[in-house]
Design a binder for these strands. Structure first.
Lengths: 347, 347
DNA sequence: GATGCTTACGAAAACGTTTTCGTGTTGATA
DNA sequence: TATCAACACGAAAACGTTTTCGTAAGCATC
């Protein structure tokens, strides 16, 4: 009933532990007869080596630690699915920690895992960490010889492998598309600047306008507190966006830096009597489930989350399995795609 | 740079390993002076005990294994967030495996983790496992002394702790609500019967009709292959549901066993010129993000995923930490709530 | 009959802990 | 001065592996 060990097999078959171990690994030192006997016994009672003992011996756990800000989140889970796929192919497990966007929980999670439980990290830093700009926990982990691969929300101040999204370029594509569709007054709904991706996407928006000879107009930019991007503040979000649209009646398109802002913009535009896509077009960022099933379906900038996860896992595993090599840190940029759906159909 | 161990501290301070270990645990055997010295050194160089070595020694890993069919899924991630919260409070980590609805991957994941990596499982079986009705891997795991807590998709044939949703009751509430709203021809969009929750929700629908004196009408029941409940088959799903609604023009309400079916039903009803909620009402199952941000927002049966996860983790941890006690297996039923939104507003 | 070479196996160390038990030193007591 | 307890520490086993090294037995060789 209880787990079988080498020692128990050895005692049972009256040989030494070493002999059992070698026999199971087809070591030629062991005679045909003994080997057959031991293997048969092990198979019969379904012997499986204990992973913890192996980890201790090898000083490798064959598991990756993934720290994400939030798990009930389409983008992050998509990334995880990419990580899992690659990890499993290489015989690795994945252990997941959530920071809940809290600096303290991020530190705690990293400390908990860094003491031998895993071989390396894949992580996206919390918003609070970005705000505090305190990265000592990350640096210390790296200094201790544990590799980190950052994705999406990466921090420039820490040097390590990174897989990032081309936020600026993705936003430029989206806004350029709106311009091409003859929109003249394109607004943006974004976050406050301390959220890095928000800042970058805003930059992309501005760049696209300028490159196409359009004027920037500060009143067409709505910067929201990201605390209201959350299921419990739908009403607040709605009223902010409603007011914004009402105060800018000439708006004929919105680029929103996430799905929720985009969907809310669509509803509020509807409420103001605008028809989408006929007289109001919308593009979001992040190709999640909301965009696909929205009504009308929402055009969006796809980040290829699964590809991000795969790439991050590949980089980490490669580094882990080639520790003798001096591999320079890399930053991989995953390009975005504009997925066109009904919210940007031509008139 | 490299990880500090007891041995290194011992060598550095010229004492034995035992002394270091005891000093760090404030064992009174060690003199004040030595204790202070060792603790100061350990703190200075940030000593943290190696988790793997502890796991081996204690034969406890303090980590829970969670196997889910799919991670890019609102309900499952909500459950995970509940598990994480409780696990972290008790000093446990969570390691996640995905079966991708495949029996083989489920078995592989369980085998991979069962060999010492974790202390117990929380799992929801894959669709393929339900179809094959092969549960030997689950039974064997339990026989080896590793506890399992099943949630949501549980299997009656295996006895262990379970946390399940009251699918029948939830569906009854939903359909009863539609009846109360004066709907006369209520259809259901559900899955084929081999999906257990689909079957139960269908049963709830039928029960509600009968208990309210309405007739069952087979033509108002649409049983879909669950392969098309997937982002790649939106078109197919749409056409199936469109035909269903078109062939039953007298339908004035739909109860759908998941969000996607419900949203698609709303779009298709729109396409057929029906106004929601005025002449067509819809209720879905699973209170996910889609329901909240749908337009009109979708009334739905909420399963309280986080509560399910919390309860499952509590049961598992309690069992793990009271191994001496003979705890009988429990099945906890989490009741559902009907969340009313605009798709069922009164006329 | 001494030497050497296979063959087949076991002992022991190592990974990093915790914990039990043993022991040398000190100071007090009879 | 012999005895004893208290004190402070170290040795070693244990958790379950892998792997290096040592060695006994058997046989052939000269």
């Amino acid at each position: 009933m209880q787990k079988l060990t080498l020692k128990k097999i050895a005692r049972e078959l009256d040989v030494s532990i070493s002999t059992v171990s070698k026999a199971l690994k087809d070591n030629p030192e062991i005679s045909e007869e003994t080997r057959k006997k031991i293997q048969a016994f092990a198979k019969l009672y379904n012997y499986k080596p204990n992973n913890i003992a192996l980890s201790l011996k090898n000083r490798k756990t064959k598991t990756l630690g993934v720290i994400i800000p939030e798990i009930v989140h389409h983008f992050f889970t998509t990334v995880i699915s990419g990580i899992e796929a690659v990890a499993n192919d290489h015989g690795y497990n994945v252990i997941i920690g959530m920071s809940n966007e809290s600096f303290t929980k991020e530190v705690l999670n990293i400390e908990m895992l860094a003491n031998g439980s895993i071989d390396g990290f894949i992580l996206s830093v919390s918003k609070e960490t970005q705000l505090l700009k305190d990265y000592h926990h990350l640096q210390e982990t790296i200094n201790q010889g544990m590799p980190i691969v950052m994705f999406d929300r990466s921090v420039d101040e820490v040097s390590c492998d990174k897989v990032i999204v081309n936020d600026v370029e993705g936003s430029k594509k989206a806004v350029a598309k709106l311009i091409e569709l003859n929109c003249k007054n394109i607004g943006i709904i974004t976050t406050k600047d301390h959220v890095n991706v928000g800042k970058l996407r805003t930059l992309g928006y501005e760049t696209a306008l300028i490159e196409n000879g359009l004027k920037l107009n500060a009143s067409l930019v709505l910067k929201l507190n990201d605390e209201i991007n959350d299921e419990n503040h739908i009403d607040l979000l709605e009223s902010e966006i409603f007011n914004f649209l009402q105060n800018n009646p000439n708006l004929d398109a919105i680029f929103a830096v996430n799905e929720i802002y985009a969907l809310t913009a669509m509803s509020m535009a509807n409420r103001l009597g605008k028809n989408i896509p006929k007289d109001f077009k919308v593009i979001g960022f992040t190709d999640g489930i909301l965009s696909k099933y929205a009504n009308p379906s929402l055009s969006t900038v796809s980040q290829h989350g699964k590809a991000i996860g795969k790439k991050a896992a590949e980089m980490l595993i490669y580094r882990l399995e080639n520790e003798e090599k001096e591999i320079p840190y890399q930053t991989i940029v995953i390009e975005t795609d504009l997925v066109e759906r009904r919210s940007t159909e031509k008139n």
